[in-house]
Amino acid sequence: MAVTQFSFDVRVIVPPHTKLKKFFEELEKGKIMGTKCKKCGKLYFPPQADCNKCLSSDMDWVEIKGTGKLITYTVTHVAPKAYTNIAPYVIGVAQLDEGPKVTAWVRDIKPEEIKVNMKVKLVTEKCEDGITRYILKPEG
């Protein structure tokens, strides 16, 4: 008898894009887009299809410049199954000059050289697993 021992699915999860399809299409082209509520002007990044401030769903797409500073980070040594081959990797949270915050990999810098408050820029990158992501890179 085949015994599965309650094992887990360990593939990388990329959820369906639904109302934010345009974001993922633009990301492939190298552009990082947010949404801005036409009614109240609130900027959403990562984008949202709906504004929970004024309940409007009438949004404009706006390109994100992506400059900012790193607020905090971690260096992941013990990684999830699907990511063990790329560990150690850095996940950081940045404050963008445009207002929103963002969580992403911090790349192109050695983990030990990372400093809180360092200048970073959000850029697109086609990663080694074939998935295009926005990532943070040191700037200046």
């Binding site: 887990f8 360990v10 990684a79 999830p80 699907a82 990511y83 992403a104 990999w105």
Partner: peptide, 23 residues
């Protein structure tokens, strides 16, 4: 452990965080 860590990581945002391999 790597499998359990991956499953637990889905407690983070599945659309915007999960594909960065959070734990």
């Amino acid at each position: 452990t790597a499998e359990i860590i991956q499953f637990m990581g889905t407690g983070g945002d599945i659309t915007w965080e999960n594909h960065y391999g959070p734990t």
